[in-house]
C-alpha cells in the first residue's frame, strides 16, 4: 500500500513540454488598470488591508497587483501596457524547495503551488526566492473591526500574523466546481467557473481555465495571441501567459 512518503514530490518534468493543469491568459493590451480584480480578489479571499503606514513599508497583502511602467520621457512618454501580476503557479517553482517547513508544496493533483497556512512558520524564504514578488507576509494581525468580518468568505482560511500567503487561483472555487461536477457525474466544463479576478474584469483581460485542454478558451487565446511567460529563462515553467500588445 502506498503511503504519503511514497509520493515523489519533486516529480516535475523540467522540460519545455511541461503542461500544467490550471492556467491563465492575460491580455495586457485591454487591461485598463482599473483595480477591479484587486478588489474582487481581496473580497473573495479574505485579504487584510494593512493601513497607510504598513502600505508605505511595502507590506500590502494583495495577491494580485497591477504593475505600471513608464517608457520614454515627456512629451514622448508612454504608460506601457498594465501588467496584472499574481502567483504564476510555476510548474517548477523557486519558492518550493526553500521552505524548511514544507508549507510551500506543489499540488500534484491540481498542479498548483500551495501555501499551507498551518505549516507555515514565517521564515519568508519563499518570498525572497520568488522572482515574481507575488507573496505577501502577515507582519501583524491586521485588524478588521466588527462588523467587517461578516463579509468573510467561509471557504477561505483567515490568516494570522506570521503566515505567508499568495494567490491560490481561487482553489476554493476549483474544489467547489469539481465537487459539483462529481456529484452530477461529469467533468468540469470549460468556463463553468472562473477565478474572482477573471470573473470581475470589466475588460475581459483575464481568462482562466485548463491549459492542458487544447480546446479550452485559455489555451485557444494563448495560441492565438502567442502568449509569453514571464522570466522563462529561470525555468519556472509558469502557468500564466501574457500578451503585451501595442
Amino acid at each position: 500500500m502506498a503511503t504519503v512518503t511514497d509520493l515523489n514530490i519533486s516529480e516535475v518534468k523540467l522540460s519545455e513540454e511541461y503542461v500544467g493543469k490550471w492556467g491563465m491568459f492575460i491580455n495586457q493590451d485591454v487591461c485598463t488598470g482599473c483595480q477591479a480584480c484587486v478588489a474582487a480578489c481581496s473580497m473573495e479571499n479574505n485579504i487584510a488591508f494593512v493601513g497607510p503606514e504598513d502600505a508605505g513599508y511595502g507590506r500590502t497583502m494583495n495577491w494580485i497587483r497591477i504593475e505600471r511602467f513608464w517608457d520614454g520621457e515627456y512629451p514622448e512618454i508612454k504608460m506601457t501596457s498594465r501588467q496584472p501580476m499574481m502567483c504564476q503557479q510555476c510548474g517548477h517553482a523557486p519558492c518550493e524547495p526553500v521552505c524548511p517547513a514544507f508549507a510551500t508544496v506543489h499540488s500534484q493533483a491540481q498542479q498548483l503551488n500551495l501555501q499551507v497556512y498551518n505549516r507555515c512558520v514565517g521564515t519568508r524564504y519563499c518570498a525572497n526566492n520568488c522572482p515574481y514578488q507575488v507573496r505577501s507576509f502577515n507582519w501583524r494581525d491586521y485588524k478588521r473591526p466588527e462588523p467587517l468580518p461578516n463579509q468573510f468568505n467561509p471557504d477561505v482560511t483567515v490568516r494570522q500574523r506570521g503566515v505567508m500567503e499568495k494567490c491560490t487561483f481561487c482553489i476554493q472555487r476549483i474544489h467547489q466546481a469539481e465537487d459539483k461536477a462529481r456529484s452530477e457525474g461529469r467533468e468540469v466544463a470549460d468556463g463553468e467557473f472562473t477565478t474572482a479576478c477573471a470573473q470581475v474584469c470589466p475588460a475581459d483581460a483575464i481568462t482562466f481555465g485548463r491549459v492542458d485542454n487544447p480546446e479550452s478558451l485559455v489555451s485557444q487565446l494563448t495560441k492565438q495571441y502567442e502568449g509569453l511567460k514571464h522570466l522563462p529563462e529561470l525555468g519556472t515553467l509558469s502557468n500564466v501567459s501574457y500578451f503585451k500588445g501595442g
Binding site: V105, S107, Q108, A109, L114, V116, T157
Partner: peptide, 13 residues
C-alpha cells in the same frame, strides 16, 4: 487518487 486525497490543497486553503 492518492495524489488527490493526500494533497495538502485538498483540505488546506
Amino acid at each position: 487518487l492518492l495524489n488527490k486525497l493526500a494533497d495538502c490543497g485538498t483540505c488546506h486553503y
